[in-house]
Structures are given as C-alpha cells and as structure tokens.
Design a protein around this nucleic acid. Sequence first.
DNA 1: CTTGGAATGTCAACGCTGCTGACATAAAGT
DNA 2: ACTTTATGTCAGCAGCGTTGACATTCCAAG
Lengths: 163, 163
Amino acid sequence: MIEKRAQGGESLLFLTDAQLRRGIEAMFFAYRGFTADPDRILEQYGYGRAHHRAVHFINRWPGTRVNDLLTVLGVTKQSLNRVLRTLIEDGLVDSRVGTRDRRERHLTLTDKGRALERALSDAQTARMRDAFRRAGPDAVVGFRRVLEEMMDEDLRRLFEDVA
Amino acid sequence: MIEKRAQGGESLLFLTDAQLRRGIEAMFFAYRGFTADPDRILEQYGYGRAHHRAVHFINRWPGTRVNDLLTVLGVTKQSLNRVLRTLIEDGLVDSRVGTRDRRERHLTLTDKGRALERALSDAQTARMRDAFRRAGPDAVVGFRRVLEEMMDEDLRRLFEDVA
DNA sequence: CTTGGAATGTCAACGCTGCTGACATAAAGT
DNA sequence: ACTTTATGTCAGCAGCGTTGACATTCCAAG
C-alpha cells in the first residue's frame, strides 16, 4: 500500500507495491505464452511438459545421468523415472548402463528424440525470438538480469556454470 | 545453429540461437524461484498453486464472477470449481448469488482469505522486490517489456487493460 | 573375502489439478 | 410455453508432482 519510497536519497518508484504486483502478473501471463506452443506439439505426441523438459536437457547434455537430470529439473527421481520410461519405450531416448559405474544410466536422444526436441525448440524459440526482436537488445539484457536475480541461489549458480 | 545474423544492415547478436536458448532456460529456472516461496506457504495449508491463483485474482477484483476468473486463469470451469469449493468450505472465499442474474456467483475473500492472500503476496513480492532492486530500474523496464511481448495476444490485452 | 552401508535407479500408490462429459438451474429468444 | 443458451456443479480420467519399499551396484571396514 506504499505508493512511493525514498531510500538513501534515491527515488525507487519501480519498487512500489503496484509495480511489484504487475511484475508478478506479467510473469504469470508470460509463462502461459512461453509454454503454449510446445504444449500444442506435445499434445499430438501424448506427452506433457515433463517430457519436454527431459528431452530438452538430455539434448543439452548428451550422455547425462539420471541423477544429474534430477538436480536440474528439481523433481524426484520417481517422478522423472515415469517420464523417462515412456520416452525410452517410445524410442526417443536411449538409456545405457554406465561402464565405470554400472548403477548409472546414461541418457541420449535417438534420431526420433532429436526430431521432437527440434520441433519443440523451434516453436518455443520462435516466440522468444519475436519477443526479443520487438523488445530490443536493451530490454533483453534487463529481462535476463531480472530473471537471474529471481532464481534460487543454487539454480543461479547452475545456470551460470553451464553458460 | 546460426551464430550470427545481420538483417537490414543491423547486427542482431542478441537473437542468436544460443542467446534464445539461454532465455528459455532462464525463464524455466526463474519461474521455479518465482513459485518457490508461495509453494512453501501453500503446503502448510494443504493447498496448491491453483488455490494461490484463485485467491490472488479474487483479491484483485472483489465480487468477480466465476466466468471472469476462468478467462484470466485459462482453465476450465470444472477445474476452477474444485478449487473454489475447497476455498469456500474452508471459509476463505465467500460466494454470493448474483442479484441481476441469479445464475452468477460473485466471489469475495473473507478475512481469513485475505490473510492467506497477504501471506502469499508478501512472500512472492519480497523475492520480486529483491530481484528488482539488485537488477535496477532499467532492467525492470526491459524485463516487463519482454514478458509482455511473450504473452498471447488476448492475454496481453487483458494485462494492459487491468493496469 | 565378506559384509554392511551408501548410492543409483525402478515399481507402486497417493494427491493436486488439468481435462471431458453429464446435468441442474436461470435467462433469453421464438 | 418451449427451446436454446449461459452459468455453475458433480463425476471420473490423465499428467505429473509426492513418499515408501525395494533391487542392484559400489565401496569401505573388518
């Protein structure tokens, strides 16, 4: 309910409750747009967002282990396992027993898996590209900056490490 | 796979595939942070994100009708109804039959509902405020600009209308 | 070498929240 | 008055989170 603030002699109009609430709602609505296009593609395959995320990060780090994926995705291994099982059964993901440690499973996309990843990525990238283009380079820098500041500490480190 | 582009004689380095992929992953990780704090509070109440969203927008527009909420939330009335039922039973939301049109239900938060809304809002706003503060005013403008461009057309209009 | 514990991954069952379908009630048009 | 349309409710299914129980493998202590 505070409409204006001054702190250290500096006017911080962009931190009013109204501005923050707008930011929250923008985040909510934008995320809907962000997932809308991939969702339509996934529906045709009978998959959901969890499959998208798995396919995305397996493509990103081919040969990654289940345990690594868990950290990145932030879900339980049981939850991820269900998704991986269908992807493996459907021939989109290849699961290979580790050579050094045979408890581990190393995951890779098959050609079929890469095709889906490409379709999803193209759709999502297209929207992002249009948004970036219309907003302009400076806005994109600010966008990325705020998003990074909004992440949990451990995720930000992870995000920056894999740059 | 295109690392650089030139278009209309203008260098658009911020639209490389790598940059766009970074944007996508930033969005994914940031949204996790965005929902993390409210999620912890909701858990104590035995509620989920759907309850948060309902409570948020009922607080935003007291007396709103179920049908209006559906548009904003982008879910089916059956899905929303389940959430509203629990909120009404638990005494967080008041549902009143419309006077002009008695098919309609007008929704309002009770004191108890406002208390939960405040707790959720405080938590989510705190993170947003910190992120905004660290990123600075210019970044916030860019952040908001890109998010708006990422929304579906109808949601963007809705978002701008309720400013 | 054996054994006990820790790590990795799988199977089962439960809950939240999307969805479609069927339906009751109220309003509106013919 | 009757049909059509709009609003909201109830029931049941699917996706994807969760915890619990368990098999396999590795490794370290004895």
